[in-house]
Design a protein around this nucleic acid. Structure first.
Length: 431
RNA sequence: GGGGAGAUGGCAGAGCGGUUGAAUGCAGCGGUCUUGAAAACCGCCGGGCGUGCAAGCGUCCCGGGGGUUCGAAUCCCCCUCUCCCCGCCA
């Protein structure tokens, strides 16, 4: 959520932000509600002040035994009672409407974010590695996986539904290896490991910005319970409604969780393979940073995700999302896109964002640092994938495939694979 | 699922319906003392909103919501959560 005072004083900035994001907001209604809110507050608080002092007076008269005067004072105050109740109710309505309006406004892009209408205008920042030239016909992971007997699409659909898949044998082991490998990388970089629930409530989802606007993207378990779309939700909300000790910042958290997405809007996109599915595994990084340090922390977090790809020897490039492609809560985002031979292109495998105080304001996460300022301030939250496990697996299968249909295990993963260096076709899973 | 207890400031923990936004302790901040530190002593020390250049003033907040009252942390109702016992159970 944006700062309401900022919006009042800089409506043009919100207009510009909305235009650059292909969005819109009701500026007139905002000012209408905002003005009414303040006038209602002024009036009701004035009446409350009168009532409060009258009440004190009544208390005093009662103590002094001046019954008649006390009764007269009571009658005088009673007149305002109804008006106060009326204004109070109106205040509730206006504030609710205003909050609702505000909670649908996305974050404002950082000034360094390039202007653009959609992902075609994202800007490449750097490349690492060179896509491999195959001297044989390279296969897509959706063919090679089943042939190796490590990915089973048909039975995944049978036991769960479309856009679900099943890993078997070395496929399952590779998933587990990747999870452990990524988490170990982050632990070495100073991240604290967490293991959160994958079911969450509405307040938590509101805090990170999934609700109220993106309810349709979420799986519902019960009216107030949802499956998490990413561990970011849980890690960021760990400190919801808390005041963090400023000397502890930045806090660096990591967690592995499965992620659940309805993908109702994704029909027809990435229909093959394990690229876009309803349930996927991801290791996530989240940081809580001081405002003046958050941009540096974004660079560092992006670098941390890059190290994972480098360690796996997977070619990738980094792009800055343009304004039109930016997510709801993000002020700036770097996407890491890994080379996928089947796409003959780079495909998103990590997204690292600085949300500034947008989520912190929603989730009420502040910090305190008596040596620098009195009171509390909203901190900045950041999140980044490190990495999407399923897409990493797809990239490994495709980039490390051999002409004989086997897949070489990236060296860094061998210890995590129990010494296995090559994945060979196996029986009894799907083949 | 059944029964019982509870929810107060960063933490711990008081609080006859009327200067209680809230005692006290710890933590924190500032200071005295000290070569420095500790100890001791003194002072300060919640948040949101409105208003104001500011100092300040006002208002709301004692899990959440509603009610009674001139006035509620204190009384009533509903909800949520936590803890303990029993049942069930990986």
């Amino acid at each position: 959520m944006l700062d309401i005072k900022f919006v009042r004083e800089n409506p043009d900035a919100v207009d510009a932000s909305m235009a650059s994001r292909n969005g819109s907001w009701d500026r007139d209604r905002f000012f209408e509600l905002e003005a009414e809110r303040r006038s209602v507050i002024a009036e009701v608080e004035g009446l409350q002040a009168q009532r409060n002092s009258a009440s004190k007076q009544i208390g005093r008269l009662m103590r002094e035994g001046k019954r008649d005067e006390a009764e007269a004072a009571k009658a005088a105050v009673a007149a305002d009672k109804e008006r106060i109740a009326e204004l109070d109710a109106r205040r509730g309505e206006v504030e609710e409407a205003l909050t609702d309006l505000m909670s649908h406004i996305p974050n404002i892009p950082d000034e360094s974010v390039p202007y653009g209408k959609d992902d075609s205008e994202n800007v490449e920042v750097r490349r690492w590695g060179t896509p491999r030239e195959f001297d044989f016909e390279a296969k897509a992971h959706w063919d090679l996986g089943p042939e190796l007997g490590i990915i089973d699409f048909e039975r995944g659909v049978k036991i769960a539904g479309s856009r679900f898949y099943l890993l078997g044998g070395m496929g399952a082991r590779l998933e587990r290896a990747l999870i452990n490998f990524f988490i170990d990388m982050h632990i070495k970089a100073g991240f604290k490991e967490w293991w959160p629930p994958v079911i969450t409530n509405a307040a938590t989802l509101y805090g990170t910005g999934q609700l109220p606007k993106f309810e349709d993207d979420l799986y519902h378990v019960e009216p107030n319970l949802y499956l998490i779309p990413t561990a970011e939700v849980m890690l960021t909300n760990i400190h919801r409604d808390e005041i963090v000790d400023g000397s502890k910042l930045p806090l660096k958290y990591t967690a592995f969780t499965p992620c659940f997405r309805e993908e109702s809007g994704g029909a027809g996109r990435d229909t093959r393979g394990i690229i876009r599915v309803h349930e996927f595994d991801k290791v996530e990084m989240v940081k809580f940073a001081r405002p003046e340090d958050s941009m540096n922390q974004l660079e560092a977090m992006t670098h941390e995700a890059e190290l994972c790809l480098q360690a796996l020897g997977l070619p990738y490039h980094v792009v800055t999302l343009c304004s039109g492609d930016l997510g709801f809560s993000a002020a700036k985002t770097y996407d890491l896109e890994v080379w996928l031979p089947s796409y003959n292109n780079y495909k998103e495998i990590s997204s690292c964002s600085n949300c500034w105080d947008f989520q912190a304001r929603r989730a009420n996460i502040r910090y305190k640092d008596p040596s620098e300022f009195k009171g509390t301030r909203y901190l900045h939250t950041l999140n980044g994938s490190g990495l999407a496990v399923g897409r990493a697996m797809a990239a490994i299968i495709e980039n490390y495939q051999n002409e004989d249909g086997t897949v070489t295990v990236p060296e860094a993963l061998v210890p995590y694979m129990g010494g296995v260096t090559v994945i060979e076709p196996e029986e009894g899973v799907s083949a």
